[in-house]
Simulated assay, not measured.
Amino acid sequence: MTAAASPPDEKKAEPARSVGAQEVVGADGFLDEVRALTDGRGADLVLDPVGGDRFPASFRALRRGGGASSWDSRSGTPRPSR
């Protein structure tokens, strides 16, 4: 399993790497980058500490049968994912 992180800026990328993220991808293009990293399969697990508007992209980045956890909503109330 590859662990990827999506910190808000490069300043926070190094702490993500220091706790095990092999890949660091930006919020812009997150879904496409996760799909590219997983050969289109999608992520096994998404841990989303931001939630809100960013959660639908996290959810869509999952593989079929994958899991997601969101524990905050700093960016607002989540909108329905389609």
Rank of each mutant, 00 (worst) to 15 (best):
A13V: 05
E10H: 07
A21Y: 11
D32R: 15
V24Q: 01
A5C: 13
R35C: 01
F59G: 00
D44T: 07
F59D: 00
E10I: 10
A27R: 11
E33H: 09
L45P: 04
L62V: 07
L62S: 02
V19Q: 11
L47C: 08
L45Q: 14
R17W: 06
P15S: 07
G65Y: 07
P56Q: 05
R41F: 07
A13E: 15
D72H: 09
S75C: 01
A27K: 07
S81F: 05
A21N: 09
K11G: 14
S58L: 00
G52H: 10
S81E: 13
A68V: 05
L45R: 15
R60S: 11
R60K: 13
V46Y: 10
W71G: 11
P80L: 08
A4W: 01
P80H: 00
D39W: 12
S70D: 01
L31V: 12
T38S: 14
L47T: 05
G67E: 03
S75M: 07
G52E: 05
F55A: 05
S18P: 01
S75N: 04
L31D: 04
A4Y: 05
L62I: 05
E14M: 00
D28M: 08
E14C: 02
P56T: 09
P8D: 04
Q22D: 13
P56D: 10
G51I: 10
P80W: 03
R60M: 06
A16Y: 04
P7M: 09
A36C: 02
D53P: 03
A27P: 06
P56W: 11
R17M: 07
G65R: 10
K11I: 04
D72P: 00
D32H: 11
D53A: 15
D32Q: 15
L47A: 11
K12Y: 08
T2W: 09
G40T: 03
D32C: 03
R17D: 01
R82C: 00
S6H: 02
R54F: 14
D28A: 12
G52K: 06
R17V: 06
